[in-house]
Simulated scan of single mutants.
Amino acid sequence: MASRFRSEPTSEHAAVETVSDDELGSIPGYRAVIRIAIREYRIAIRGRWAIGLTALFAIFSVTVVGFGTSEVGPSQYAAVVASLVELGVYLVPLAALTVGYDTVVGAREAGSLDMLFTLPVSQAQVIFGKYLGRLAVLGGAMGIGLGVGGVAATLIGGIGGLEQYALFVIVSVATAGVFLGVSVLLSTLAREKTQALGAALVAWLWFVLLHDLVAIGLIAGTELPDAALTVMALTNPADVYRLLVLSQLETTTGGFAAVLAKASLSVPLLVVALIVWLLAPIVVATVGIRHQPP
């Protein structure tokens, strides 16, 4: 018998697509992850939030591009991309954390997680598959939405700045993957969806607002070496996101980003830091799910 998920669920809280033990028992690990990811993608894509996210990022990018190019001129894409990054550092983490906070705890409350765990797949495969499914939806929404802004930038100022804009889009999607992983980790550890949502909001406040405020306070009160500034940047994925894009631009901004620019962080180091942030939350989540009480 060909191995496949049998039926399409009508809602996230309704039926769980089932696979027989014999079917999954012969499927390699990576194929099981892909099937779980496809299942999660199909469930998530039915929700209206995917369309809403696409519209949100399209409006965001077109608005910034429109105002930016009209103010600085069509040849100054660097300033426009810098503005997108400084605003995106608030929007991208918030969108990702909101998308992922109920990934595990919501499935547990609905009963579908226990049903998946009865199948011959590991808990790590379930968590990773669910993460990939939601990342596909989130990344697709961001790619389409921000792509609309890229089209607007091309129409207004030509193709001269598309490379910079493309870098912004790629790093933005990768950063969304980081915060989606953080939200999946929080969803794994939470007992209820309300707890997961509260933890996601606290994470957003820390990474986007409080971390830099604390860092600025330390810098203002003490003479920190460059190594301390490097650690501050690398321990915050929002700062890694900001610096990775701004390092490729001819313009810069003020605030903590200007301070961190003195730390001489190399692009390869920032890329490695972003990759570590992509992997670490999901790895911890796959370990944490094994210690959750039934």
Rank of each mutant, 00 (worst) to 15 (best):
V16Y: 07
V16W: 04
V16M: 04
E17Y: 05
E17L: 10
E17F: 09
T18I: 03
T18V: 15
T18K: 12
T18Q: 13
V19G: 15
S20Y: 10
D21C: 01
D21W: 08
D21K: 03
D22P: 06
D22K: 01
E23S: 12
E23Q: 15
E23C: 06
E23W: 07
E23K: 11
E23V: 11
L24S: 05
L24H: 05
L24Y: 01
G25S: 13
G25Q: 00
G25R: 04
G25Y: 05
G25L: 11
S26I: 08
S26W: 05
I27T: 03
P28A: 01
P28D: 04
P28Y: 02
P28V: 02
G29L: 04
G29K: 07
G29R: 12
Y30I: 09
Y30D: 10
Y30A: 10
Y30T: 09
Y30K: 04
R31V: 11
R31K: 09
R31Q: 09
R31G: 00
A32P: 00
A32F: 00
A32D: 00
V33G: 03
V33K: 03
V33L: 04
I34W: 03
I34L: 14
R35P: 09
R35I: 14
R35H: 11
R35W: 10
R35N: 10
R35L: 11
I36D: 06
A37T: 01
A37R: 01
A37F: 03
I38E: 11
I38H: 11
I38T: 07
R39D: 15
R39V: 15
R39T: 06
R39I: 13
E40D: 15
E40W: 07
E40G: 10
Y41G: 01
Y41S: 07
R42D: 15
I43P: 02
I43Y: 02
A44I: 02
A44R: 08
I45K: 06
I45F: 08
R46V: 11
R46H: 13
G47L: 08
G47D: 06
R48I: 14
R48T: 05
R48S: 13
R48G: 14
R48V: 13
R48Y: 10
W49Y: 10
W49V: 10
A50I: 10
I51S: 05
I51H: 09
I51C: 11
I51V: 14
I51Y: 13
G52F: 08
G52Y: 05
L53Q: 09
A55H: 06
A55D: 08
A55R: 01
F57K: 04
A58S: 06
F60W: 02
F60P: 04
F60C: 02
S61K: 00
S61V: 06
S61W: 00
V62S: 13
V62C: 07
V62Y: 08
T63Y: 03
T63V: 11
T63H: 00
V64G: 02
V64P: 02
V65D: 01
G66E: 12
F67V: 08
F67P: 03
F67D: 09
T69N: 15
S70H: 13
S70R: 07
S70F: 15
S70P: 05
E71D: 12
E71M: 12
V72N: 14
V72K: 15
V72Q: 13
V72G: 02
G73H: 01
P74K: 03
P74A: 15
P74N: 15
S75K: 07
